[in-house]
Amino acid sequence: MTNRKTTLLALLSLLIGMVVIAPRPADARVIRVAEFLADCPFSHRLPDDPIVFPGLPGASHMHSFFGSRVTNAYTQLSDLQNGATNCNPAVDKSSYWVPTLYRDGAAVEPAIVTFYYLGEGVRDDIIATTQATPLGLRIVAGNAKATGPDGSSIARWSCLHAGEVPPSKDFVNCPSGTMLESYLDFPQCWNGRDLDSADHKSHMAYPVAGACPSTHPVPVPKLRQVIRYPVSGDPSHFRLASGGGFTMHGDFFNAWPTAEMERRVRDCIRPIVKCGADGRPS
């Protein structure tokens, strides 16, 4: 009896396993992606950083700001909530910024700037428990202090419409007619307590083996910053305000209205549905 039960259980688990891991039929062509996004173009440039150097105008290297039109050294959450934005959707009052890119000493601003909010990075059953990014959360991702294209830098450079150029931690040489692009994924595991931390990083963590670590147990949408610059060619002409390409980093100050963020997490992220800027299935 016990043996038969065991055999039955084993068969059952095998069957369940097959269903779970069975590839989807090729003809269905359903790609399940947990995603919503905000397109926020260049807004303004200032040598300010309200996360790293709050209250100290001019203390920072030059930053290019996206989204909120009002961000400066003094910016608080209420300033973002009451200020204008250039994001699509306009409900996203968040501020996003990166070190300014220079070509031969002249500032170059991006042509396309998209912030994706993604479920990926953790297992599907954990994606289903994703929490809304808390209002007022501040994160610095990437390593402004990187001294070379080593393990300490997370940002990647590649070419839009030139996939044959391998991505790199430093600037790449993009063929004429294509655009230099930068990808940066922010950490998506929150400690559930702090909206910021002394180093502006340690309240957040990257997932380990598809799950959030016990120190940072709360999964929130992963912010993926994708920036396309209208430049190509010899990378020796480029530098960032913070140094080489490997010093690329991004700052995020969340000012999405709570209800808008929660709706998107409920309708797009947890059920693994691809949504557009309006937070509806696209």
Partner: peptide, 14 residues
């Protein structure tokens, strides 16, 4: 110059 600039910021926001 930079030290003077950031010292002003501290006095007004510190």
């Amino acid at each position: 110059d930079q030290l003077v600039l950031v010292a002003k910021g501290e006095q007004s926001s510190g």
